[in-house]
Write a protein that binds this DNA or RNA. Structure first.
Lengths: 174, 174
DNA sequence: ACCTGAACACCGTTCAAGT
DNA sequence: ACCTGAACACCGTTCAAGT
């Protein structure tokens, strides 16, 4: 006699994302996720191989979410950078996870496609990849440091971001 | 009757760093650290409040180590960036930890002092802080992505690093 | 076909008892 | 004064038994 399904994979991943933002990766326990979707921990193993696989799914869902935000911007380098930063502020733990978990690089590569295109129109085909890496690395590092509380020597952080963006574009125009 | 000390805090931190590099943060267990220094896990609590405190000590020791490398370079922006990258390649897990653990930002701020000075000589007092943040963010993000395996669209990664450094300096000179 | 309680291994942490 | 075995809480994971 079949039992009706009491939860779904998307529900489980959404529960994982919510727990993640509520206090970091340590909050994603199989028991906490199970409770949130109304099931017992062992039942999760019907839909997910193990906790690592679940964490990777959470990272990938976060990257796909980011990809949507970037694609929905006007796709200029400045807008892409600002959308990236807004996303990191909205999901700080999700943002951290994107670089903390092995295997999320693929999904991040997909999300970064508009950056490559914006770089191409700015510096041409020849140096597009290097230029995209320059801008992406800067923004990622900036957000990493901002979220880690590394900007404590004073100064306006918003202004530092805009300054960086401006100098970067100047440097790329050469 | 006093018992002779069988280990020391520096020994414990060194064991933590070695375990960290052997396979990531998950390798730092109280039992593994204790075994490495020749003691039982409960004894570690004589020298360390708890696991989180030990992990923070590991991060701080790593940041101090990095500070020494940076200070020993010729302190030009390019040399600082290359020394930073060499350090991240030597201690990839330690590098990741620097931005993953809460409380390590202070020690990182100390390590970054030479970057601020190099930025000052390049762009002047007024914009020194913003410029230092630009370069530090770029290098940190680049290494983060490099270590996460995010550079998979081909292209020479060493060359991308040098390209970024060059464009960054060009942008800062205005 | 999915769900669950029970069980096991492992880890962080405390503490009374040893020397 | 430091060290330890024993104990407890908590977590990931497996599995036989339920429906």
């Amino acid at each position: 006699m079949p039992t009706p399904e009491r939860t779904t994979l998307p529900e489980i991943v959404a529960a994982g994302r919510a727990l993640l933002e509520s206090g970091g990766l340590g909050r994603i326990t199989m028991q906490a996720v199970a409770e949130r979707v109304g099931v017992r921990a062992p039942s999760l193993y019907k839909r997910v191989r193990d906790r690592d696989a679940l964490v990777l799914l959470v990272a990938e869902a976060t990257a796909d979410d980011l990809a949507g935000r970037l694609a929905a911007s006007d796709r200029s380098l400045a807008s892409l950078a600002r959308a990236y930063r807004a996303f990191a502020h909205e999901f700080p733990e999700g943002f951290r996870l994107l670089f903390a978990v092995d295997g999320a690089a693929d999904a991040m590569g997909r999300a970064a496609a508009p950056v490559l295109e914006a770089a191409r129109t700015l510096v041409g085909e020849e140096r597009a990849l290097d230029a995209a890496r320059l801008v992406t690395a800067w923004a990622t590092g900036f957000l990493n440091m901002e979220l880690a509380g590394a900007f404590r020597l004073g100064g306006d952080v918003d202004e530092a971001f805009e300054y960086g963006l401006e100098r970067l574009e100047a440097g790329l125009r050469g």
